[in-house]
Design a binder for these strands. Structure first.
Lengths: 210, 210
DNA sequence: CAGAATGTCAACCAACCGGTTGATTGTCAA
DNA sequence: TTGACAATCAACCGGTTGGTTGACATTCTG
């Protein structure tokens, strides 16, 4: 009989991509193992060969996402040109918002991980190291801003980082409900641009020296 | 045979409460119809008698939640004493944060609704009317603050309301991931108190006159 | 009180779902 | 060339799941 072509570890990558899309779209419980295999073009059993279980597949997809975040953040802080602290914050927030806009799967998967608090344990180390480069950069920018007298001193970089992530991510998490609440179509390009601009201004105002 | 006691529409309420807890804890796909019935102490079929389907049950649970939000908001804006605009914002944000803290089911259900974008349509009208009283109050406070020269003028109340909700809700949405990112236990009382305080300060700073 | 409307349940079911089995075929090192 | 190993698949399975059926008891109404 015709056995399918070999692609050492190729099926693994195909499965991860399919899993990521499926889990993002339907959640862990809503996604179907067989559908993921079909989407990847391989037999269902191969999931168990590479990942042991549906949970294992989900965990692997999550880890891949955190790794991608880490690489993107690392690339940014290594390539960013020096600039005024307020401009640095603006650039960074615009980039974060824009990236979330273009990668809805990332938000969906992280959200799903949080809903199953700790069931698909991705090690704290992996999660933290995916954000450390960016967090350290933000802390440096805040300190620099304080030194120049542009920002208040004593701003807690952890709280500020939390604010940044909250404001940017939340837009894409509760888009449907907030559209109804505010009577606006938050999926429109105009709304996104306006919101992104506002978030930048809000964050900078919140740390600016009086 | 012993038929169970009658409780006209009582089973309906019992089912709604059980459904709310189950959907919040396990999501729509993770929750089991039979478990919900058992938790409510009634036969599974009664769900189909009152709600037609699992989807119908979910929709009813959501509507109940929006109705509760509306009542709570209405009660607040009708009973709140007049005070300085900045104090009014502080009080309101503290209350929002505290309520989310005590009612995790609300967040979980709204989140689930957004994940299934529009599949369990709760009418825009219901969603909007659950927030209108509070939104109007916030808009009045901002205008009053601007009139007194405490706040900047030209602050968009929609964006500000969005900020408030974002900062408060996000804490409880991604608690697990953010704990790892920041290296803090965000479930601790101390973290919550500190975060609540920071959010108040951040929001007020973002609208205060220069 | 009769009968209609309402509320409740036990038993059933077909489809589905995550996971297993066992066999088969390329691939590569010795 | 050969034998071990990596990769793949078709077929199968037991348990689960949302949903249905039909009968029956209680309550309401005229």
């Amino acid at each position: 009989m015709t056995q399918a072509k070999r692609r050492p570890n190729g099926s693994r990558e195909l499965l991860l991509a399919a899993a990521r899309a499926a889990f993002a779209a339907k959640g862990f419980d809503g996604a179907r193992v067989e559908e993921i295999a079909a989407e990847a073009g391989v037999n269902k059993q191969i999931i168990y060969y590479y990942f042991e279980s549906k949970d294992g597949l989900f965990r692997a997809a999550l880890e891949q996402i955190y790794e991608a975040i880490r690489e993107q953040n690392l690339a940014y802080v290594e390539s960013v040109k020096p600039m005024r602290p307020d401009a640095a914050i603006a650039a960074l927030v615009e980039r974060l918002f824009g990236r979330l806009q273009r990668q809805p799967d990332v938000i969906a998967l992280v959200l799903e991980e949080n809903r199953h608090k700790g069931r698909h344990l991705v090690s704290r180390k992996i999660i933290q190291s995916s954000h450390t480069p960016m967090f350290d950069y933000v802390a440096r920018v805040l300190a620099e801003g304080a030194r120049l007298g542009i920002f208040r001193s004593g701003v807690d970089p952890r709280q500020f980082y939390f604010d940044m992530v909250s404001l940017c991510m939340f837009y894409f998490i509760n888009t449907y409900t907030m559209s109804a609440v505010l009577g606006t179509d938050l999926l429109s390009q105009g709304s996104m641009r306006a919101r992104r601009k506002h978030i930048v201004e809000c964050l900078i105002a919140s740390v600016s020296a009086p």
